[in-house]
Amino acid sequence: MLHSSLAVDDQEKVFDIAPEGIRKCIISSNIAETSITIDGIRFIVDSGKVKELSHDPTSNMSKLSEFWISKASATQRSGRAGRTGPGECFRLYSENEFNHFNDFPVPEIQRAPLEPLLLQIKAMDLGCPRTFDYVEAPSEDALNASMEFLQNLGAIDVSENIMALGKILADLPVDTIIGKMLIMATVIMIITI
């Protein structure tokens, strides 16, 4: 098996050469799609699916969902077979399904929570997140929902200026709600001591 939550030692086992007369079978997540090249891969079985994090800005909920891959991902996957010798890719979906795939994957900024990014833009004084020059801009609805959420959280004020809480949250490598809980728990502990 090969996926990102395995220990490094376990991930490196995919590079071991199989003994004579033994066929090695690697079952992998999309980590092997772009990150690594494994010598000797002759056959790829492509399910056409990928699990990706998607975020609903109106409910402020994220979930891991299964989606069809893009045409670019399908091409990338098929290219993993035969990089160091002859190879073949078996796709478990029809040509008609392939023709309906998106050309490229949906950019992560359009499917991830925006609050940490918006706080970083504000904390680094890079301007207004609404007019920031994104490579792939998030939707206006997602920006509005995230800015409103940050106001309700107390990280920015009604004029969308960053507040002290927002500056601290921008430095924490956790979700904004968890960050506020950690800060508030610390404050309560200090007060009670």
Score class of each variant (00 low, 15 high):
S78N: 13
S78D: 15
G79I: 14
G79L: 14
G79Q: 15
R80Q: 02
R80W: 08
G82Y: 09
G82W: 09
G82S: 15
G82R: 11
R83N: 06
R83G: 01
R83K: 06
R83M: 10
T84H: 03
T84V: 05
P86I: 10
P86H: 07
P86V: 02
P86Y: 10
G87E: 01
G87C: 08
G87K: 04
E88I: 13
E88S: 03
E88L: 12
C89A: 08
C89R: 00
F90N: 13
F90I: 15
R91N: 10
L92Q: 13
L92Y: 11
L92T: 10
Y93R: 03
S94F: 14
S94N: 11
E95Q: 11
N96C: 05
N96R: 14
N96A: 15
E97R: 13
E97N: 10
F98N: 08
F98C: 04
N99A: 11
N99K: 12
N99V: 07
N99Q: 11
N99F: 04
N99M: 13
H100F: 09
H100D: 15
H100S: 12
H100K: 12
F101Q: 09
F101P: 09
F101T: 08
F101I: 12
N102H: 13
D103M: 11
D103A: 15
F104H: 13
P105C: 14
P105M: 13
V106G: 02
V106N: 05
P107L: 05
P107E: 12
P107K: 12
E108Y: 11
I109L: 13
I109S: 13
I109D: 04
I109P: 09
Q110L: 11
Q110Y: 04
Q110E: 06
R111M: 11
R111L: 11
A112L: 15
P113F: 00
L114V: 06
L114Q: 06
L114S: 03
P116W: 03
P116Y: 10
P116V: 06
P116I: 03
P116A: 00
L117H: 00
L117F: 09
L117R: 06
L117M: 06
L117C: 02
L118G: 04
L119G: 05
L119S: 07
L119H: 02
Q120I: 04
Q120A: 00
Q120K: 05
Q120T: 00
Q120Y: 01
I121A: 03
I121M: 02
K122R: 10
K122L: 07
K122C: 07
K122W: 02
A123T: 01
M124S: 07
M124W: 09
D125I: 02
D125G: 10
L126T: 04
L126E: 08
L126S: 05
L126W: 01
G127L: 04
G127F: 01
G127A: 03
G127I: 00
C128M: 09
C128E: 12
C128R: 09
C128V: 06
P129M: 03
P129H: 12
P129F: 00
R130C: 10
R130P: 00
T131N: 03
T131M: 07
T131C: 01
